[in-house]
Design a protein around this nucleic acid. Structure first.
Length: 564
RNA sequence: GCCCUCGUAGCUCAGUGGAUAGAGCGCCGGCCUCCGGAGCCGGGUGCGCAGGUUCGAGUCCUGCCGAGGGCACCA
């Protein structure tokens, strides 16, 4: 990557000027940034600013010294000292051409870093199997999925995992709710518990069980019946969740059931381990975790007075399980309503003897559904929800994913179904996809005219000289760095913005530069540029889980459609 | 009350301590003999308030104001 090469040049210059600057000890970190203004060069570094105090000389003077020691390099055209002491570097076009060649040659692999040999687990969605997924889960799903994609591209070995909370009170309520509906279906008097689940989907689950067993379960002893229905009901919901996720293009390497942690004794062992470490104690008949030792507001219950372990106890067991699998990073994707649990989870990690820095929580704000400006109220208990499946039926996977990834995790999202459905500029996903389809169209057009893409190493790229062409080249060249950045910051939304930037630069290029002309060398160079842009857009969309179409339907009322 | 997140253009939002803070939407005006006009070009207004750290603060720290969320032997 070009930034690395530039940074190395600057480091060499630093080494060479160390004597003159009276610089002893370690060299400072060299940061390379892309200036906002063209006049400030292709890349810029602030080392001189950072170094000025240390060597006791004015920053501009330091920058001059470093500039004078920059090694000669075919990629480096010139360096300028500017502003308070920036060192601005102007490169030859060779680096832009190299980037384009790489994009075209590598295709789908362009922007993928070398393997780091580091392992990360991303645990996300992890919704209870008590009902269908909705938009809130959808945001969790796309954030986790995109972070996994992006970290994979950045060189991490990623494992995606879903944790089913299929034990505990909520599941019992779910089971009791399904059971009531099942019994009602066969004319047996039964009530859904007041704090149970009242949605229509509960009746659907009951119906599915009835379809399988008829009224056979009615005659079972109550305890056995409850267990059967809970088990089968949650399995049915789970299958439905998996199907929805599949459709949403979210895949997992592993599903872990909380039940297993209990049945295998891992929960008991984890609590025991906390006790041995001196971080668990008994009081009021319950077993407590000394969370206050780690900055939490209060101590937390591990085992209730009635002997039942809490979810937190299972979380501790899961933590032990995750650490035992040797990950370098453990990422949890949580809704902001769980921020209060962060301290105790990290505390648990420390108490169990692990490095809490390995545990990383990605929090995201809530999604509020609107329809044409009108708030869509949702209550899961009352069963008044718009399911993710319904949402996907109505607005589609691409628009849903892109929209949910187009805000920072910290920003709440107002998801207006009518707006996201619209194929308009309220909806940038189509702008980006259109860019991709347009390039595909150009390439088809060229092919029809008998103009094919030659191997890019045989093509002279020097004809790419206009501002629009160079801007597009730069965007393509920036992609690998953007991917690393998005991965490091766990901020996939940055790629959603970058995708729009890429598309915008392509659209301007398209408007200003005719690709297929009688000028053969120019045509060939521009075709290669278009092909590189296509790769870049496709790869960024791919990381977001959004399709890059070869063609799109023309809009009704599109004037270009009139004569076609 | 305590804790977390957020407050940037009329609206919705970007902006990992750097130079003149950006994009889309909306509004006004231009651009199709030609590869897809779902496009392109031009037009302008803004970092909630007050301190502090720094050569340099939208970004870091403190306080205040405002919005959302969390403070269970619930998830």
């Amino acid at each position: 990557m070009i930034e690395r090469r530039v940074a190395e040049l600057v480091r060499e210059a630093l080494r060479a000027s160390a004597g003159e600057l009276g610089l002893d000890g370690a060299l400072p970190e060299v940061e390379i940034s892309v200036p906002k203004l063209r006049e400030h060069g292709d890349f810029s570094t602030n080392v001189a600013l950072a170094l000025a105090r240390r060597v006791g000389r004015p920053p501009r003077e330091v920058a001059e010294v470093i500039a004078a020691h920059l090694p000669a390099d075919p990629v480096l055209a010139r360096a300028e000292v500017a502003g308070p002491g920036f060192l601005n570097l102007f490169l030859t076009d060779a680096w832009l051409h190299d980037a384009l060649r790489e994009a075209v040659r590598l295709g789908p692999a362009y922007g993928r870093a070398e393997r780091l040999g580091r392992r990360v687990q991303v645990e996300f969605v992890s919704a209870n199997p008590t009902g269908p997924l909705h938009v809130g889960h959808a945001r969790n799903a796309v954030i986790g999925d995109a972070i996994a994609n992006v970290m994979d591209a950045a060189g991490w070995d990623v494992q995606r995992e879903y944790y089913f909370n299929d034990a505990g009170r909520q599941m019992e309520l779910f089971g009791a709710s399904v059971e009531a509906r099942y019994l009602q279906r066969f004319g047996v008097e039964a009530e859904v518990p007041p704090d149970g689940y009242h949605g229509a989907y509960i009746a659907d689950v009951a119906e599915a069980i009835a379809a399988r067993h008829g009224d056979a379960l009615v005659r079972l002893p109550p305890e056995e019946r409850a267990a059967r229905i809970l088990h089968e009901g949650s399995a049915l919901v789970l299958d439905q969740i998996k199907a929805t996720l599949e459709r949403f293009r979210v895949r997992f390497d592993r599903y872990l059931h909380e039940r297993e942690l209990h049945d295998s004794g891992q929960v008991t062992r984890a609590v025991e381990r906390l006790r041995e470490a001196g971080y668990a104690y008994e009081a009021d008949g319950a077993v407590w975790f000394r969370a206050t030792a780690f900055g939490d507001d209060k101590d937390r219950v591990l085992i209730r007075a009635n002997g039942a372990p809490t979810y937190f106890a299972a979380d501790c067991a899961y933590l032990v399980d995750k650490f035992s699998r040797g990950f370098d990073r453990l990422i949890y994707v949580w809704g902001a309503d769980h921020h209060g649990d962060v301290a105790r989870l990290k505390g648990a990690a420390r108490a169990l003897g692990y490095d809490p820095e390995v545990v990383e929580i990605v929090l995201y704000q809530f999604v509020t559904l609107y329809r044409g400006g009108e708030l869509v109220r949702m209550s899961k208990r009352a069963g008044d929800i718009v399911t993710l499946d319904e949402l996907l039926d109505e607005v589609g996977v691409d628009a849903t994913r892109f929209t949910l990834l187009s805000r920072s995790n910290d920003s709440p999202i107002d998801f207006d179904i009518e707006l996201v459905k619209r194929r308009s500029m309220d909806n940038p996903v189509y702008y980006v996809q259109y860019g991709h389809a347009r390039i595909a169209s150009i390439l088809r057009h060229a092919a029809e005219r008998g103009v094919g893409l030659r191997p890019i190493d045989e093509v002279d790229l020097a004809p790419l000289a206009t501002e629009a062409e160079r801007d597009l080249l730069r965007a393509i060249a920036e992609l690998p760095g953007r991917v690393l950045e998005a991965a490091e910051l766990r901020a996939p939304h940055r790629l959603a913005y970058f995708a729009q930037d890429l598309a915008a630069r392509f659209h301007r290029f398209y408007t200003e530069c005719r690709v297929v002309t009688d000028d053969e060398p120019l045509t060939q160079a521009r075709l290669q540029l278009a092909a590189g842009a296509k790769v870049a857009i496709a790869n960024v969309l791919g990381l977001l889980g959004v399709e890059a179409p070869e063609a799109m339907e023309r809009l009704e009322g599109d004037p270009s459609d009139a004569g076609a």
